[in-house]
Nucleic acid binder design. Structure first.
Lengths: 216, 216
DNA sequence: CGCATTGTTGAGAGCTGTCAAACAGCGTGG
DNA sequence: CCACGCTGTTTGACAGCTCTCAACAATGCG
């Protein structure tokens, strides 16, 4: 196979933060795996209202098998590195490799659960709980050492891949409200902040408490 | 194959309104197709807050392939009629019949899109728009003659499969707010109501307008 | 017909949104 | 090196929407 042909089948793509990756209308002709960075999926209304409906982290797919694109925009939240597979070859690979098909199915079901969990956040949580929930989510995904269970006394630190505007768009809030809730968490010692993006959480369990009610 | 063996592989199940169908914890051992009625998927928090995260209509699946159940409760919103397939035989059928697998995949992707669309409703719409959006959704699913496109001047009538409480749980509102918004739509002639459950919409396009901003 | 359940309506409080201004970070250019 | 302006964040004051609490009406059932 020639280099040119190979490049058509699989290629690398870098998208700087803020870049549009999928326009939600036309089939890009490829399906990608995120190598690094965070991708946001969002819906925009005619009057300008915006809602982020999903965040994709490294190892997850961007794009959709079957030619029909998902009806949402995909944008790079941070600088993103993608590995893109030509749609046709991806479909072929799925047909021929049952395991790949199962991986795609498994990830889709996982995304569905995550979306529904977030529906609870959007529909039932207070602004304070929403912000704590988002920070907790980020801690789970971005912690240097994966500490999936919020263990007491475990301090972690990470850099937010989202601006205040993006946090608000994911939480169904305004940037002012997000900022106030962050300040409040800071004032109560639940988190501390360096330069608006670096968050350190002395006690994940305490943050988890704040994400469910208002204890501690 | 004996009747008993067949019954283990596929059987009918009726669930009266309000009945718990899946507890969100243990694998029920089957996957079902809804023959009639509406099933709600919901998440409950320890403090009693409830959020409906999905509605399933006839033709859609309830349950999940792969043994791992979805982490949400499934309840009958109206009287429900299910056709249940033993999980093991369903898995076998998926392995042997590519088409079935594709149908499941297609439905899962569809559910994912619907969930994300609803995230926008929950995060960005006003109470008035939320209620109008729900009525519009019901009109599309329950209209006697499927009028997928909200065409002007088309009057339709349907019976709500949800109580005010359930509407509130799906919309992230309280029952009082739902009731007030319904009254308001009534007062503006967008809908009319008979007996709290039967809704008639003289003009779907007008309802669609109310679901997006507050015109008309 | 009486009762329980469900839905409606009202009054007031509280949370979040809106509008506005101050502040911080950061690259540019003097 | 510092002044400047741009962008993003924080904070404040206030209004408005939705929630809470309460009473009442309507519906359904024994």
């Amino acid at each position: 196979m020639s280099d040119a042909a190979l490049t058509r089948l699989v290629h690398r793509r870098r998208a700087p933060a803020g870049n549009l990756i999928l326009d939600g209308e036309q089939d890009p002709g490829w399906i990608a795996v995120i190598l690094s960075g965070v991708v946001k999926l969002l819906k925009t209304a005619a009057d300008g209202r915006r809602q982020i409906v999903g965040l994709q982290f490294p190892g997850q797919f961007v794009g959709r098998p079957g030619g029909k694109p998902s009806p949402f925009l995909a944008e790079a939240a941070s600088d993103v590195d993608l590995c893109c597979f030509a749609g046709s070859s991806f479909e072929t690979a799925m047909r021929e490799n049952r395991d790949l098909e199962h991986v795609v199915m498994h990830q889709t079901l996982e995304e569905l659960d995550v979306a529904r969990e977030w529906m609870f956040v959007l529909g039932r949580k207070t602004a304070q709980e929403k912000v704590a929930s988002l920070l907790l989510l980020m801690a789970h995904h971005l912690a240097p050492e994966p500490a999936d269970v919020p263990s007491a006394g475990k301090a972690i630190e990470f850099e937010l891949p989202l601006s205040r505007t993006e946090m608000a768009e994911y939480l169904g809030l305004t940037i002012e409200t997000v900022s106030r809730q962050i300040s409040n968490l800071k004032a109560h010692g639940v988190i501390s902040i360096r330069g608006a993006r670096v968050v350190s959480v002395p006690d994940l369990a305490a943050l988890a408490d704040w994400s469910e009610n208002n204890k501690s």
